[in-house]
């Protein structure tokens, strides 16, 4: 057990839990930003705790990660929020108290599931996998249980951050180029989604994704 890494992971988990409980979009965006920051910081903390020398490649990637996920993406989301003129999620499909309970049970489920797997010895911390799984499930839950298109984007970011956390926590080697590619994809993704939210607002006068239901099977005559 290394204190610093566990603190990082547990704060990541806490952010996920709070995301499921809050109605104000600005607060949710800030939570996702903190998640992104923690995610970028994790490899640095690992390098420090293990006492190895800090590779410039690791340092650079961490910096880019922090900049993109902790600052640029939240900024874009905030702009999309202001443009769409939506401040809070008024009527979620599932109430906030119930959402909190669901989030708690999802976390419990992930800890149980992560216990069933066998790990290699180079894992950063035993907490990494369960925290990542909880984040993934909470992200999915947000996408399903919230109405506003913007909250769905926030849920997607939480989902994506947690998958990246899983990669970082398991110390996986897949090359700096791939990592940059993944980051670029996520960046463009949020960019396109932001534009889409604005266009939906223009066309429909609202961004309630559950009302986007014109396309479906109609019964035959």
């Amino acid at each position: 057990m290394n204190g610093l890494i566990e603190i990082l992971l547990l704060s990541f988990l806490l952010c996920g839990f709070l995301l499921a409980n809050s109605s104000r979009l600005m607060y949710c965006i800030k939570l996702v930003a903190v998640q992104g920051f923690l995610l970028g910081f994790l490899p640095l903390a690992v390098a420090k705790v293990e006492g190895g020398s800090l590779d410039w490649e690791v340092l650079l990637l961490a910096m880019i990660n922090i900049a993109v996920k902790g600052a640029v993406l939240p900024y874009m989301l905030q702009k999309a929020m202001l443009k769409a003129g939506v401040r809070r999620e008024m009527e979620p499909l599932l109430g906030y108290a119930a959402s909190g309970l669901v989030a708690l049970s999802l976390i419990a489920l992930s800890f149980w599931f992560a216990q069933q797997l066998e790990y290699s010895e180079q894992v950063v911390s035993r907490l990494a996998a369960p925290v990542a799984f909880s984040g993934i499930l909470i992200g999915l839950f947000l996408i399903v249980a919230r109405r506003k298109a913007l909250t769905q984007v926030i849920g997607f970011l939480c989902f994506e951050n947690s998958i990246a956390l899983f990669g970082a926590g398991m110390m996986l080697q897949y090359g700096a180029l791939i990592e940059l590619g993944i980051l670029l994809d996520v960046f463009v993704m949020v960019f396109v989604m932001g534009i889409a939210v604005f266009q939906i607002k223009q066309e429909f006068q609202h961004i309630n994704a559950d009302l986007l239901n014109a396309l479906k099977e109609r019964p035959g005559k």
Partner: peptide, 21 residues
């Protein structure tokens, strides 16, 4: 531009990105 096209695009973007993630 049409409502149907925007709706289709939103579903495509969200569902496919989730799948690919």
């Amino acid at each position: 531009r049409s409502k149907a096209a925007l709706e289709a695009m939103w579903k495509y973007l969200l569902i496919c990105s989730l799948g690919i993630a």
